[in-house]
Amino acid sequence: MFPSQFDYYRPSSIAEAVGLLGANPDAKILAGGHSLLPAMKLRLAAPGALVDLGRIQELRGIRVNGGVTLGAMTTYEEIQDSAEVRQRVPMLAEAAGTVGDPQVRARGTLGGSLAHSDPAADLTAVFLALGGEVAAVGSGGERTISADDLFVDLLTTSLQPDEVITQIRFPVNGGTAMAYEKQEHPASGYAIVGVAAVLQLGDGNVCQSARLAVTGCTSKATRLSSAEAALVGQPLNDERIMQAAQGAAEGLEINGDLYASEEYRRHLVTVMTRRVLQRALSTGTN
C-alpha cells in the first residue's frame, strides 16, 4: 500500500496553510490522516501535495466561552478526555469515544471528520444535532458555516478547496438533554446507523425544541425532521417517543450494502431513534 508521489508541506500558521493551498491547486489538507491516508494508499486519492496542519498551534485546544470552542485539530481522544466537553456537551465526548479504536482516536480530528463528510462518520451527526458551527479561513478571509449548511453530499462539504476549518463551536444551553446511539460495523467501527438527539425540555418534559441527526445510512449526516416535528411541543413519554421513532426514517434516502441492506438500516433508524430518545430523557438535562 504505497501512495503515489506527493509533495509535503508543514506550515506553522493558518495564513501560511491557506497560502500553500492557493499555490498548489492539487494539494490536500492533512489532519489526522485517518481518512485521507488510507484513500491514498489504496490509490483512490492521489493529491499532488499535502499541507499538514499538525504543527499549527492555533488549531489546537478546547476553550469554554459561553459555548465550547474546539480547535479543528483536536483529536477524538482529547475530546473524550476533556472535562469541559464532558460536562457541557456530554454527547460529543460520548460519541468521540465510539469512533474506531484507540489508535484512530489518538490521531483522528474533529475538523478532519467534519471536512471529510464521510457518510458513516459519527461526529458529523453529533455536530448537526448540536447545531454547531465551523469557522473556516480561506483566501477570501474567514467565514462561519452553520451545521445545517456544511454537509452537501457524499464526501462533499460547502468548504472551498483552499478553506481550512479552524474552529468548531458548540452552543451550550440549560435544560438540554442529549445522547448518541449507534450500531457499528464490526470491521471499522463506523456507524451502520447512528442517531444523535438534542432536546430542549421544559416543565413536564415538554419538548421545546428537538434536533435529531442520522448518520451511516444516508449519503451525508441528515436531520430527522419528521421525528423532530413529532416531538416539538409535546410532553415526552414512551408513547410519544415510539411515535416519533416509527416515522423517523420517513422521506430518507437510505443506502444499503453487503453488510446491511437498505431495509435493515431503515429499521435501525427507528430502533436507534427510540433508544436515543429514551436514553436522552433518562440521563436528564444539564
Binding site: L42, P186, L258
Partner: peptide, 16 residues
C-alpha cells in the same frame, strides 16, 4: 472480492 479490505472484512478486535 467484495470484502477486499479490512474495512469490510471484520476480524475480531479485543473489544469484540
Amino acid at each position: 472480492l467484495i470484502t477486499g479490505t479490512m474495512n469490510d472484512y471484520a476480524i475480531p478486535k479485543a473489544t469484540m
